[in-house]
Design a protein around this nucleic acid. Structure first.
Lengths: 152, 152
DNA sequence: ATCTTTCTTGACCCGGCGGTAAACAAAAGG
DNA sequence: CCTTTTGTTTACCGCCGGGTCAAGAAAGAT
């Protein structure tokens, strides 16, 4: 509750990874490793992203996934809409279905403003920002690699 | 997604209704009618609210539910915590589990601020505000009552 | 005592999201 | 051609939030 769906998170991270790869084809295995999403689940998600036109796919030897040109540096908002749909920006904070401008719940005016801000932020952030984040993660990971694991 | 749980909405409306009733005992039937929540489901919710100390219950003839004195005009935040738990204010917007201050996702700084604002708003709003909202609803309802229904 | 009212309690259902498994099909290498 | 690589497709699983049902137990009226 109070966050985008986990699936959207996976999508953003995976697309960020594709952006970073330039035009190269990237396999699921790599995307799964890089995003932390379960491989089999990522497959389904990638398929949806392909159907909605955000990425292209190629199967067989040296196949994989790549960003479709049109989605280079798209804003995160476009991704949340592709994955979660675009109905959420109208929902009442309290989950109250009859909450409208005319019949406003106590948090209505406040929430209308907040939703706008959240959408603006998601529109402002692009895959490039995600790439920066992922590079940071990978650096930290490799820096701590090779150290003794806490084994049972 | 992107709102408190529906159950929390029910809780807020129901508690508002109890606040409005003063010290009187209110039956489920009335709370269900007034909140729009399914009666059987409301029963379970009310039980939880009773166990967490927000309301008192009395069964048998002229029984029902009433606000426990201590919860008169409590802030909505207390209700969301009682119903949804209080873990949500720490979750990443993108649903990314490893997102922390040290390992921040691209939306982290933004979302930390927004969460604070949302909590402040929920702390500011009290049951009295909800009562005002409910009175407005009831007025509108009764004003439109008695008019010809669109029947098949 | 007994009846009525009203909450109590426990069992169950349904749909969606996140997740898994396995058979299938295409693209390239040999 | 045949094999390898890699995505495609279909089916199924478990959990949880929201929702329903029905038998049980207490409190007041009579």
């Amino acid at each position: 509750m109070m966050h985008l769906s986990q699936t959207t998170g996976y999508a953003i991270l995976a697309l960020g990874c594709l952006e970073e790869a330039g035009g190269k084809w990237v396999r699921v295995a790599e995307l799964a490793a890089s995003t932390g999403a379960p491989r089999a689940y990522l497959v389904k998600l990638l398929h949806r992203l392909a159907k909605s036109g955000l990425i292209r796919t190629k199967r067989g030897y040296r196949g994989g996934y790549t960003l479709s040109q049109s989605s280079a540096s798209i804003p995160l908002l476009a991704i949340t809409e592709a994955v979660d749909g675009n109905e959420w920006p109208t929902q009442c904070l309290l989950g109250y279905t009859a909450c409208t401008d005319k019949e406003a719940c106590p948090a209505h005016a406040f929430w209308v403003q907040e939703r706008i801000k959240i959408q603006e932020e998601l529109a402002r952030l692009t895959l490039k920002d995600v790439v920066k984040f992922e590079r940071g993660r990978r650096r930290r990971k490799s820096r701590s690699a090779g150290q003794p694991e806490v084994s049972a």
